[in-house]
């Protein structure tokens, strides 16, 4: 009897009844820390030589010691990554929309895109060096080449998910193809686009580092190659850590952007899963 309608808790409060949110958020950190501790102990117990596998504490020491150098190289890597990524976004959107809206372009371009994507990008770097010399440009281009394909595929796939019935509704109102694209196609494919950005930015980072390792005089990849030639294995690992950290950071950034711009997609999804929405 005491349970008045207005006294009922909100949806957010209720959701925590299924709990475990705190544990879920902390779990990646916990796993990382446990791994590092096991690693440290194992190296010490089995007395692994530092040029085979340095302990995490040595790697951190190296990070601290070389932080200024690492920072400059990391900035260079980030720079080439972002340049390649920016071009990949533009090209990916344009080609994705073209392939997703025109059957002719789909037939014409898709096999070429697949063929192109199957070529290992490492093999292209030497060619790029011949054309552009070593340094920023080949790294940015490699980043671009790795990043743009998932964007194309996702944008095209998103455009293909428009319900034919909705298209019928709009066409029977006299909407042009362009108008249907603007009102429905593009918004509908935005979740796919933003999801692909997360993947694309990490691939761009991979591309940059690959290219720097082969042909550069700056960047984390170059730093690691240089360190390994001097058998400074802790610094090599420090470089790996920095790349990983960069990857996680930019991934998280784009995941935030994604939820901000296309929250409707995930919220519609959860609402459906939890049975609060219609259907």
């Amino acid at each position: 009897m005491s349970d008045m309608i207005d006294d009922l808790p909100t949806e957010e409060e209720t959701r925590s009844r299924f709990g475990r949110a705190a544990l879920e958020n902390a779990s990646p950190v916990i796993i990382a820390i446990v791994t590092l501790i096991v690693w440290e102990i194992a190296c010490r117990v089995f007395d692994v030589p530092r040029f085979v596998l340095p302990t995490p504490s040595m790697i951190f020491a190296s990070l601290v010691k070389w932080h200024a150098v690492i920072a400059t190289h990391a900035a260079q890597t980030l720079y080439t990554t972002l340049i390649g990524f920016a071009f990949a976004v533009v090209a990916g959107l344009v080609i994705g929309i073209a392939v997703g809206t025109s059957r002719l372009l789909y037939k014409a371009l898709y096999p070429i895109l697949i063929a192109f994507n199957s070529v290992p990008k490492v093999a292209i770097v030497p060619v790029l060096v011949i054309w552009f010399g070593i340094g920023t440009i080949p790294a940015a281009i490699t980043a671009f080449l790795l990043a743009f394909f998932p964007i194309v595929v996702n944008v095209a796939a998103g455009l293909a998910t428009v319900e034919p019935e909705l298209e019928d509704v709009l066409r029977s109102l006299g909407a042009s193809k362009r108008k249907i694209l603007m009102k429905v196609g593009l918004p509908r494919s935005m979740p796919y686009f933003f999801a692909s950005l997360k993947v694309a930015i990490t691939l761009a980072l991979v591309g940059s580092v690959i290219s720097e390792t082969i042909a550069s005089n700056a960047g984390i990849g170059y730093l690691m190659l240089n360190a390994s030639s001097r058998f400074d294995v802790p610094l090599v690992f420090a470089g790996l850590f920095v790349v990983a950290a960069l990857g996680v950071a930019i991934y998280a950034l784009f995941a935030t952007v994604e939820t901000r711009f296309t929250g409707w997609a995930t919220r519609a999804q959860t609402a459906r899963l939890e049975g609060t929405g219609g259907g």
Partner: peptide, 30 residues
Amino acid sequence: PLKIAGMAFQNPTLLPWRSTLDNIMLPLEI
């Protein structure tokens, strides 16, 4: 295509990124 017809199907096909009101006003934009 007719340009004047209203259509509705078994599946409501509303656009999830628009409010209900904006969904209803979609034909007015066309």
